[in-house]
Design a protein around this nucleic acid. Sequence first.
DNA 1: TTGACATGCAAGCAATTGCTTGCCTATAAA
DNA 2: TTTATAGGCAAGCAATTGCTTGCATGTCAA
Lengths: 96, 96
Amino acid sequence: MTPDELDALFKALADPTRRRIVDRLAERPDQSLFELCAGAVAKGQPVMSRQAVSQHLEVLEKAGLVQVTRAGRTKLHRLELWPLRAAQKAWLGRLL
Amino acid sequence: MTPDELDALFKALADPTRRRIVDRLAERPDQSLFELCAGAVAKGQPVMSRQAVSQHLEVLEKAGLVQVTRAGRTKLHRLELWPLRAAQKAWLGRLL
DNA sequence: TTGACATGCAAGCAATTGCTTGCCTATAAA
DNA sequence: TTTATAGGCAAGCAATTGCTTGCATGTCAA
């Protein structure tokens, strides 16, 4: 686990909207962008645009937390837990 | 562990300079600002100013990861591990 | 007291973040 | 083919980040 990978991982987790997306993907995998839009709200905002959610997903993808598969015109997202396990083994475990 | 506390924690860890400070405080506690300055380098920069390190320490303090005690004119920092354990119990543990 | 040391405070500034809006493309259904 | 659906691309913009520099404050030593 390189420092850059740790950066991307912790940065991805440092946002409540993104953690909520992770939670929802943990409950049910293979959700589309539209499904994830429903219920994604930033603090203070009434709703959140599709593009905003898409950008959050991009951050999660770069961290390796979300894997994407294409099915026709829809983009399905599923959670990937190995970055968390890797970070725990490579960094957190040494401290705790 | 509130969402805001998780935000502050993950944000604090999402920087290699701050993780390095954490590592160094794990090796030896109660280091002053000046001690932590020596060896703290940002990527691309030759050295890092005292104020920059001080601001990084502020972020770590807000996350609860660093506790400060005063000894005369020096400010001693020591690592606090409970935020990591709390995050693991409140959030990471549910996923892993 | 005088001077050196450890730190705080605050303004400034380039770069990044986090969102928005508008338009474009590709797939599926009618 | 038309029409609606799922998503992509990119410009724009206010707010935040991550540093810097300059000056002020408090503490110890001589």
